[in-house]
Amino acid sequence: MRMRTMEISVGFLMLAGFLALVVLALNISGLSLAGQGGGYKVYARFENIGGLTVRSKVSMSGVQIGEVTNIRIDTDLLMAEVEMTIRDDVDYLSTDSSAQILTSGLLGEQYIGITPGAEDETLQDGDRIRDTQSALVLEELVGKFLFNKVSE
């Protein structure tokens, strides 16, 4: 009988540990069981991507619709080329959509915001977003401000 209560409590400990790991995975680290699943790739060139990194989020109207999967330098144009994966169920982005690099909050991380356009055709896998706006770099902004002051 004594052995039995011991085994039951050890069983509860194991169960609690397993449940805690599940909570850590799903609730705290936000791992989804469905997995990343499918998505289609869209490219965009930017003059300056600022602090954008791989796994930064891509959002439309503040709702996350995908993430940045690769960043490289386009050696012909010497611009940054960002590859992002958009979820498959977001199939209504028109070809004249624009992409901006935005900052969440004052000290927050940077993300890509997509503003849909008016065309009827939608973006397909491998398409390129042409209308882009680079990240806001504080030093450049200060530089421009000082330049304007001097020229006044």
Binding site: A16, G17, A20, L24, I28
Partner: peptide, 10 residues
């Protein structure tokens, strides 16, 4: 130990 650590985190 790992079980206790995970419970501690949660």
């Amino acid at each position: 130990m790992p079980i206790l650590t995970v419970i501690f985190s949660v």
